[in-house]
Design a protein around this nucleic acid. Structure first.
Lengths: 329, 329
DNA sequence: CTACTATACTTAAACGTTTAACTATAGTGT
DNA sequence: ACACTATAGTTAAACGTTTAAGTATAGTAG
């Protein structure tokens, strides 16, 4: 009975319809179960689909329905394990929903952000999950009102999901205090980034009467410790150093080693994020664990519901954090 | 003069044509420069495009032309920095070509690979860059002949790009010999993976008469060192340990510390890959540097040329590696 | 037996582009 | 003045779906 071998060229609805001896609408209805079709024709259609190896054209569907089912993900960088982990969880969550995800790295340049998002919106995604480089809405006033969920930054115009940074800072302070530290230094991340600012605010607030913050200094999220910070560390006047994130902390670990200062015996170090590396360095890093996995899932969740319903008030999802105790503090 | 505000709904070619008082074909020709259009109408078209904020519909174009300009990237995992770096370079290379990239992580499961690639092909990508979990063609006999470039694995059916692993192994051996090591241990990666096998083959071959390989043991690409390997390390009969990759090497570093064996004073350790972490652990890792960046670029290169021309003989791109000397050896 | 309703299926328009084929207008050489 | 060729622009078909609207058939109620 079979006539055609599965051809190299694309099989379309039309081919299936012809093979099954029905109209293409019938095929569509069978496939999408949008209307009841008799058992006999249903069977013929399904057979033909199978035999011809029919695969629907995503582009045609997207064009007709206006929905591609795809989402975009814009990240500052992929080589930073924090972002990579986020990307992993987002793709996973998206896959569970049958969505594919477009990935764009802005290479840490906010100048790339707008182009990135525009290229995605042009690329026909239904929505975008965006991790901006800074708390700055480089996309605002964009031509198309594309659903956007922002991660980890506080942009008023979009739905956001982020961790409870303030509480993270407080937990870190409480942890150090509970370990008996009285003299503490703080190497904080860029203070123009709200997530970073909140961390510090929570930390200093919780510290207040219980311990002395001998010094604090702002520092980029980099491994190589800047000179000013270096000098503070070398003073050895503190028994614990809180760092803006794990990257800085790992840098500090190295500096301590170079200075011959034992960690944690002489000075304890604490990070923030709990990236993969934290467990691997020596001494392994005591840090505040970010709910990366959950953030990715929540972001996808919120985005899909926003896609389904553009209206509705802005959503904001704040996830909890906790301290992970390891060797460094 | 301006009449319409940039509307929320999508602006189409038709709108632009109407606004400019020309046919939609003219607009298309102006935009694609496929046919000469007079300066006057060209200007009107461009104005209208600007004023209405027209953005072409990717889906419509893809449907009409059969090309989306997108490529898919299938990786075992994103949290491994090696893969993340690859993803970064692929997205970068693709962006330079104006392509977006779909990302799918198979979570280390070969059972996910076929579905992943099929979901992409259904997703309308022009081609796929695939980093298989193993040297196993889990996609073979696929319905659609989608252009596929394979990275780092040796699958006969596709274009491939990978590093010169054998030479990498040889360079490592030569390096250790040049440092005077005579008694060497090898903790190699899974030998059913060709890239891993080649490493070992090159290493042992180059070692042959110049030094003694006291032991070798196969080990998963994991940080936590298995018991059998642990026992070998504890023997302290070697002065250098070559590892299948950086991950294993970092695990070995930790084991040495726990055993109170100084590295590199007592035992040197060498890794393979030069992932980001290698420079950050202590002691920092001497390793063989993979041309990750180049691999990504080459893969995109080969894929695009393959998309342009499906025919032509299978391509194979082998990139060079080199030793990066740090503290651990 | 008629009129109505429900069911099963088909027709055709629409989505937003590209592009082959056509038309109109002006320019050229004789 | 003529046929011929460029040049500039338009028309309409096509890509592969979805889906509103329509048609035909059978079943039900009066």
């Amino acid at each position: 009975m079979a006539k055609k071998a599965p051809e190299p060229g694309k099989t379309t609805l039309k081919d299936v319809a012809a093979a099954a001896g029905v109209s293409i609408a019938t095929v569509s209805y069978v496939l999408n179960k949008k209307k009841p079709i008799g058992v006999e024709k249903t069977k013929r259609v399904l057979d033909s689909v199978e035999r011809l190896g029919y695969r629907p054209s995503k582009h045609a569907i997207a064009m007709r329905t206006g929905r591609s089912g795809d989402i975009g993900l814009v990240l500052p960088d992929l080589t930073t394990s924090y972002f990579a982990a986020l990307a992993e969880s987002v793709t996973l969550a998206a896959a569970q929903r049958g969505s594919n995800v477009y990935l764009i790295s802005t290479n840490g340049l906010k100048s790339n952000e707008r182009t990135a998002i525009e290229s995605l919106s042009k690329g026909g995604v239904d929505g975008v999950i965006w991790f901006p480089n800074f708390d700055e809405d480089t996309y605002s006033g964009a031509p198309m009102d594309l659903p956007v969920v922002v991660i980890d930054r506080n942009l008023a115009a979009y739905d956001v999901v982020h961790a409870d940074y303030r509480r993270g800072g407080m937990l870190a302070a409480q942890f150090l205090c509970s370990k008996g530290h009285q003299k503490i230094g703080l190497i904080e991340g860029p203070q123009n980034i709200s997530s970073s600012f909140e961390r510090s605010a929570g930390f200093t607030a919780a510290l207040s009467s219980h311990a002395d913050l001998l010094w604090r200094i702002e520092h980029g999220f980099r491994y190589d410790i800047e000179h000013a910070a270096l000098k503070l560390i070398a003073q050895k006047d503190v028994t614990a150093i809180m760092c803006g994130n794990d990257t800085i902390a790992i840098g500090v670990l190295r500096v301590l080693r170079q200075l011959g200062i034992a960690c944690p015996q002489a000075i304890s170090v604490m990070g923030f994020n709990d990236t993969q590396m934290s467990a691997l360095v020596y001494p392994s890093l005591t840090t505040v664990k970010m709910p990366i996995q959950e953030m990715g899932f929540e972001a996808v969740d919120i985005l899909t519901s926003r896609i389904a319903n553009r209206a509705g008030t802005r959503r904001r999802c704040v996830l909890d954090v906790c301290v992970v105790e390891r060797e460094s503090a």
